[in-house]
């Protein structure tokens, strides 16, 4: 029945990994500006288009 130990360990490790990723994301400043990226992602098309026009 000791499989429960493995399962528990795995579930806690997965949770801690997610938590670490969250901390990393906050630290890198991802939550400081939560508006501009939503617009920036729409721009890639225009950049390519204007390059082609050259």
């Amino acid at each position: 029945m000791s499989v429960i130990y493995i399962l528990l360990a795995v579930s806690i490790i997965v949770a801690i990994v997610f938590f670490a990723v969250f901390v990393f994301a906050v630290k890198s400043g991802q939550y400081d500006d939560n508006y501009t990226p939503s617009i920036r992602m729409l721009f890639e098309d225009e950049l390519v288009k204007s390059k082609k026009e050259k």
């Binding site: 806690i12 949770a15 997610f18 938590f19 969250f22 906050v26 630290k27 939550y31």
Partner: peptide
């Protein structure tokens, strides 16, 4: 200096709460 401690604290509490 950007104070992000409230987000960290919220993250820790959420993590603990869920588990």
């Amino acid at each position: 200096y950007i104070n992000r401690s409230i987000i960290y604290k919220l993250g820790v509490a959420g993590f603990g709460f869920g588990n």
